[in-house]
């Protein structure tokens, strides 16, 4: 027995210009795509523009969709790219320096101050939600180059190669930025975890 991929049917109908199929596609993916664009652009208006541009580009490219991934994954990549393009055109906000958030060492390479012991995350739902809010705010405080890498790699689930391609940098730059971003987030989150 052959299994029918629901994407195949939708794709066939969209390629045939079926209006209902386009509506189905937009309604089933727009919430997630809006959330993705808003995480990158941080405002509703910019996110709405990026989502619209992403969908329209996807519609124009339907004939080139090769089925190597699901339609949702393919659209996700397009919307992330549209959001990043929009982000690049924006004037940068004042940023904290990443070096100020990295660990400090003396001339012999030892930690300048003793490192605090961290507790585990709370099991209490309210505290867990509060922690999620604080983590989101801390990610937003990172310098843009580092914030975007954390979003793409750790939140959107792209791999290093995909992130490098979208950001037009090398994979080693992605790895370095991700490591520094995690170190900086460690510094920002420390007050929530120390015993």
């Amino acid at each position: 027995m052959t299994t029918v991929n629901p994407d195949d049917d939708l794709l066939t109908r969209m390629r045939a210009g079926n209006e209902e199929a386009f509506a189905e596609f937009v309604r089933s993916h727009s919430n997630r795509m809006f959330a993705v664009a808003k995480r990158i652009l941080r405002d509703d208006e910019g996110a709405a523009d990026a989502v619209q541009e992403g969908f329209l580009l996807a519609f124009r490219s339907l004939d080139r969709f090769g089925g190597q991934s699901s339609l949702g994954t393919w659209l996700h990549r397009i919307v992330v790219n549209a959001s990043l393009t929009k982000l690049r055109t924006r004037t940068r906000r004042p940023e904290i320096l990443i070096d100020d958030l990295l660990p400090k060492f003396d001339q012999t390479g030892h930690h300048v101050e003793p490192v605090n012991r961290w507790s585990g995350p709370s099991d209490e739902p309210l505290q867990r939600e509060e922690l999620r809010v604080q983590i989101r705010e801390s990610i937003d405080r990172l310098p843009e180059d580092f914030r975007v890498v954390v979003l793409l790699r750790d939140i959107e689930g792209l791999d290093t190669d995909q992130t490098a391609e979208l950001l037009q940098v090398s994979t080693s730059v992605v790895k370095t930025r991700l490591h520094r971003a995690r170190q900086a987030l460690r510094t920002l989150l420390e007050p929530l975890f120390i015993k």
Partner: peptide
């Protein structure tokens, strides 16, 4: 430091889409 770095990573991944 290693432990806190891993806890940070774990905390970030809680937000994973």
């Amino acid at each position: 430091y290693l432990d806190s770095y891993q806890k940070t990573d774990h905390a970030i991944c809680q937000l994973k889409d």
